[in-house]
């Protein structure tokens, strides 16, 4: 049985994620919020703009961008990792999984239910490379609306971080064995033994037609 994205999206919606008695959404081992897309995007790009007013050093500016990409690693590791270890994943997605790369197709289908935009796999070489087209990402949507199309660098920070975290979790972190998602494991996976990195191939914020991201193995 192939991965059926429609069924996965419907299943996420049927979870009925809303704040409980204490106003928290506790699911997948994390506390979730419905955050406002324009809030997150404004924080990223305004903080970046204010930071750039303080320095013209491109290396320092890039370090700032890396912080936002790391936020995507944190998100991917905890939220997506938590989802891939959840009972809901076991019940809905696992029966559709035939081979290891189906884990990637399955978690991309889940992402498409989270409101982040539409992620489409363009190329997948198992254990080597993943290319994803991101349509209507909330980051670029906001960027285009407020800053235009002449960004000096790609602005899909969340997507960059999240997509590399998926490859690292599945091929290096062996998420199939349900490791405990601790701070120590995070550091091992993303600081010490990181094997997959993401780079932007094209980005709408730079005037391209589509946002496309490639995740590949470090030699």
């Amino acid at each position: 049985m192939a991965i059926d994205e429609d069924i996965i999206i419907e299943s996420v919606q049927q979870l009925g994620l809303e704040g409980g008695e204490n106003g928290l959404i506790l699911e997948f081992g994390v506390a979730l919020t419905y955050g406002f897309a324009d809030y997150y995007a404004e924080l990223e790009y305004e903080a970046e703009r204010l930071f750039q007013e303080e320095t013209e050093d491109e290396l320092v500016r890039q370090a700032a961008r890396e912080l936002f990409i790391e936020a995507g690693h944190v998100c991917g590791f905890n939220t997506l990792g938590g989802i891939m270890e959840s009972e809901a994943w076991e019940a809905v997605v696992m029966p559709m999984i035939e081979k290891q790369e189906d884990w990637i197709r399955g978690i991309i289908a889940v992402i498409n239910a989270l409101g982040w935009g539409r992620y489409e796999i363009v190329e997948l070489i198992p254990g080597e490379k993943l290319v994803v087209q991101v349509i209507n990402s909330y980051e670029c949507r906001h960027y285009l609306e407020h800053y235009g199309t002449d960004a000096e660098s790609a602005k899909c920070y969340l997507s960059l971080g999240v997509l590399s975290s998926i490859m690292n979790l599945i091929y290096e972190g062996k998420i199939v064995e349900k490791p405990e998602l601790t701070e120590t494991f995070y550091h091992q996976l993303f600081k010490e033994n990181k094997k997959f990195v993401a780079r932007s191939i094209s980005c709408r914020a730079k005037g391209d037609h589509v946002c496309r991201i490639e995740v590949s193995k470090i030699d």
């Binding site: 994390v30 897309a37 790391e70 936020a71 909330y138 949507r141």
Partner: peptide, 20 residues
Amino acid sequence: PVVLHCHHYNMFLQQSISDL
């Protein structure tokens, strides 16, 4: 438009904004 994010992301982003 709203997006689902976890507390790890929310806390990390807020701390990063202050750091920057």
